[in-house]
Design a protein around this nucleic acid. Structure first.
Lengths: 152, 152
DNA sequence: TTGACTTCGTTGCAATTGCAACGATATTGG
DNA sequence: CCAATATCGTTGCAATTGCAACGAAGTCAA
């Protein structure tokens, strides 16, 4: 109607794409492990290192509000996947890390994730590496953003 | 820890990217027009045609739950941006279209949207067209999905 | 040391959300 | 025509969410 074309509009396209993909992938772990999306994200993040990670570090990188991270961590702790402890050097900080049970879950989940990822990239064929790179560039071009809350 | 690399994992990367971009763009219309994200999406969709559109057509394309579309439509109707009417040929269907006021708002918003879009693509430089195309390919490679609800 | 200020994670609360159930309408098969 | 079934949009409700406010802990300057 106006010369604005929704189908070429990046925020819209990305939102639809990412929510579809996120939902589709979630089917692989929701039933099987009883994880919500924020819980999966937290677990995935913790699986990247053996060092303990603070709530702040997570919500900065993962674009989740800190309350979301905090609640996901509590639920995961209750279920035995995550261990919370107080950082002795700075007692404001909470240290999060995976328990043995948590690591075992990731061992099971990781192959599914890799497979899903591969499947996405197959659809792109040769364009896949360029796409990955483009996503990375876009992410870095966005300002690191403020100080407190992200949304989810 | 395991050989799963979150930074290369598409669903995660896309989710972070899209939520950042969506939030960033939302700053342009939230204060100025008092629109929520779902409301903007509905308006944007309606701006693409002068024909009336049903709730179903929208939530199918826009990946929003139908209740979300329904509520966005009601709020927008109350505020005079959208006109709801019953389709006489099939009285189950609700016809949605922009009012004059709604069109005027889009006229104001469209340039902002185009500008934001351009700004995103600039970060990509030459890779921009390929990126757009890749997003489209990915979107089409995802199954059109079930029948009832989307999420948002 | 003290007092002002900052940072961290949790929690209260209101708003938003997704899902299921519903009433209304339409379609289909007999 | 009628009964069974399907589709559409709205709504009730419980769960999730974002935001602000908070207490606890740390930092800094005087």
């Amino acid at each position: 109607m106006t010369d604005f074309h929704l189908d070429d509009f990046m925020p819209y396209q990305l939102a639809v794409l990412s929510s579809k993909i996120s939902r589709e992938f979630a089917e692989l772990y929701t039933d099987r492990f009883g994880l919500s999306v924020p819980e999966w994200r937290l677990v995935a993040h913790l699986s990247q290192t053996s060092d303990p990670v603070s709530v702040r570090e997570i919500f900065e990188r993962v674009d989740m509000d800190k309350s979301k991270v905090s609640r996901a961590a509590s639920r995961l702790e209750q279920r035995g996947y995550v261990i919370k402890s107080v950082n002795p050097a700075d007692r404001r900080l909470v240290e999060l890390r995976l328990s043995e049970k948590g690591r075992a879950m990731v061992e099971e989940l990781a192959p599914l994730a890799r497979q899903y990822d591969r499947q996405c990239l197959e659809a792109l064929g040769e364009a896949a590496p360029a796409f990955r790179e483009a996503v990375r560039v876009l992410l870095e071009s966005r300002r690191p953003s403020g100080d407190t809350q992200r949304h989810g």
